[in-house]
Design a protein around this nucleic acid. Structure first.
Lengths: 203, 203
DNA sequence: ATTATATCGATAAATATATATCGATATATA
DNA sequence: TATATATCGATATATATTTATCGATATAAT
């Protein structure tokens, strides 16, 4: 039986919490993690039970083992090559963000249809014309595509990515992308999050 | 009885779908919306039942009425003043993004502790030193704060915002912020989304 | 006018998720 | 050594969410 989405979403929080603990800390209890993240202790224990070995009463879990288990489960260990389509503000923010390496994501390059944007970015990563996307992805064996183009171009870019053999797409454009079943589409919807905020504020 | 979070999260998707329909379309059925967004029709119908008036068999709902109801529910109609703390790539991406107006969000300015970043951005919005944050928020009656600073500075900025009378914080730093109960904290966690993608890819 | 059909709202069932409870146990303390 | 305590895993309960089913109804077609 596979692990549910809600649990998967919490795993990186646990990982982040564990990483930020002092190095000399060897053991952590579910209770402590829960308090640190504002979650329930039973929930944390149940989540951890799904992926790691047992914890010890009065002691908790082994931090190192836990971190290992989470990284394994999330596939952070095998490095995955990614490209970004759309070198706007958001796209270049991603391109220059070093932190993705911790998640096993190696962003190879960005692509844009505005030729004035092409060239080398501050951090030494390149922005190429979008027309080069397919060939690049094929020869470099890129498996993840990040879409940060305007909605109107998103489906086009998605099609290109699919044709290039990309296996998963992280989509920041607020549109439903049509792609073969075999391609994983992960939609990121800032509007959803903002809606929550706005609604809570309205009450 | 209030509307659940999962429903609230879907409302902007409906709104977006409705907006993108041809102007001459007056009626939409739940079935059509569901197909367009890749959701179940019963789910759409139940969601809409919570916020809008009745639909007609064989015809569906009135598009205009529906859009109105969603915008009302999400509080998109009353304009809310917001500031951004952290004028990095992500922060300036938000600062220059015009689309937030559709969500009732009026981003007044950004703030940064790096003085070399202060000044006027491309779109005519200003970046001020972070030391000006409190006074600005108080005098301008800002109610939303967007945090796009590094994790290490996030709590500091959060404290400042709370002291400035900000009512809701949209937090992009992967840390748990401590704030009074009365302040709404909405965490945005890109790592969670990426974790899902990565996990699905690993299987 | 009758029939067919798309759609509705409502109710019911199924699934998923979160929370509460409790006996067992490893460590620390008396 | 005996007792107290934090924590565990497991089981049970409660809540939330999604999906399925069905009779009713507005419109279109016969």
């Amino acid at each position: 039986m596979s692990i549910s989405q809600t649990v998967i979403r919490r795993l990186p929080m646990y990982l982040h919490y564990l990483k930020q603990l002092p190095e000399e800390t060897h053991n952590v209890s579910a209770t402590t993690i829960a308090a640190g993240l504002g979650l329930g202790d039973v929930q944390v224990r149940k989540d951890l039970a799904l992926i790691s070995g047992a914890g010890k009463p009065k002691v908790g879990y082994e931090k190192a083992e836990l971190m290992d288990a989470i990284e394994d489960c999330l596939g952070y260990k095998d490095k995955k090559l990614a490209v970004i389509a759309g070198a706007g503000k958001l796209g270049t923010a991603f391109l220059e963000f070093e932190g993705f390496n911790d998640y096993g994501l190696n962003i190879a390059a960005a692509f844009d249809n505005n030729l004035s944007k092409t060239g080398c970015s501050n951090t030494g990563k390149y922005i190429y014309p979008i027309s080069d996307l397919k060939e690049f992805c094929r020869t470099e064996k890129v498996i993840i595509g990040i879409i940060t183009v305007p909605s109107s171009d998103a489906q086009n870019v998605c099609d290109m990515m699919v044709e290039s053999g990309i296996k998963a797409i992280w989509n920041f454009a607020p549109v439903k992308l049509n792609a073969p079943e075999s391609v994983i589409i992960q939609n990121e919807n800032l509007a959803s999050s903002l809606a929550l905020l706005s609604n809570r504020l309205a009450r």
